[in-house]
């Protein structure tokens, strides 16, 4: 016997309106980390992002009647977080120094310049690895755990964009509407994020023989 699948967000609505703890918990578990990443991408440091998202949860659940189902609950929640995070980030800019803001290294990390000779040819061609090698290198760890770890190590804006575009599979236009990043800006951030994660996977597969099985 398999357990019934978790209800999707929309199926949870009546239970959320009834303020059922288990429903709140399921929704928070499903979206909290992603929403914090969205807030981080809007120039909030980790702790401030956590605070904003907690406030956004309270505002959202208090105003569930205002959710009309024209978008998914996920999109609606993200919109609330974006609004509140922008406001919080603007308030911080008025009172803090720029060094306090997240993400200067969002502009870094295109293809590795060192990988190429001055004439534009590969200095050292990419290491040969595939998904199978990666799974072997992870030695029983979930690939998804490694994926999340790699995303977590990205600069905040890159992490936010790659979550929306590649993990959630949202389009450029929807992401622009949610995060307020132009398609060109998303392009640059998404490229850098994918290259960095590819490099992380390459490193994992290269290092694999070093940590041999006991």
């Amino acid at each position: 016997m398999t357990a019934p699948p978790d209800p999707n967000d929309e199926e949870l609505l009546p239970r959320l309106r009834a303020r059922e703890e288990a429903a709140f918990r399921l929704l928070v578990r499903r979206h909290h980390v992603r929403l914090v990443a969205v807030a981080r991408g809007l120039s909030l440091p980790q702790e401030a992002a956590e605070e904003v998202v907690q406030e956004a949860w309270i505002a959202a659940m208090r105003n569930l009647d205002g959710f009309e189902g024209r978008s998914s609950l996920r999109t609606w929640l993200t919109g609330i977080v974006v609004l509140m995070a922008r406001k919080a980030a603007a308030a911080r800019r008025r009172t803090r120094t720029f060094s306090d803001l997240a993400g200067p290294d969002d502009e870094e990390g295109g293809v590795d310049a060192d990988a190429f000779l001055a004439d534009g040819h590969w200095r050292e061609p990419p290491w040969h690895w595939s998904e199978v090698d990666l799974e072997r290198a992870l030695a029983g760890r979930q690939v998804w755990a490694a994926v999340q770890e790699a995303i977590g190590a990205l600069p905040p804006l890159q992490a936010s964009v790659i979550r929306q575009r590649d993990v959630e599979g949202l389009g450029a236009r929807e992401t622009e509407a949610m995060l307020g990043l132009s398609e060109a800006r998303q392009r640059a951030l998404l490229d850098r994020a994918r290259f960095r994660i590819r490099a992380t996977f390459e490193r994992l597969t290269r290092e694999a023989p070093a940590r041999a099985m006991p």
Binding site: R29, I58, E131, A145
Partner: peptide, 28 residues
């Protein structure tokens, strides 16, 4: 790399954080 990312479930929040958020929601 792109394909491996698709659909990766978001990690759960720290249990302490999750409890705090749920408690705040229940306080309403």
């Amino acid at each position: 790399t792109r394909d491996l990312l698709r659909g990766a479930p978001a990690p759960a929040p720290d249990p302490g954080r999750e409890d705090a958020v749920v408690a705040a929601l229940l306080r309403g």
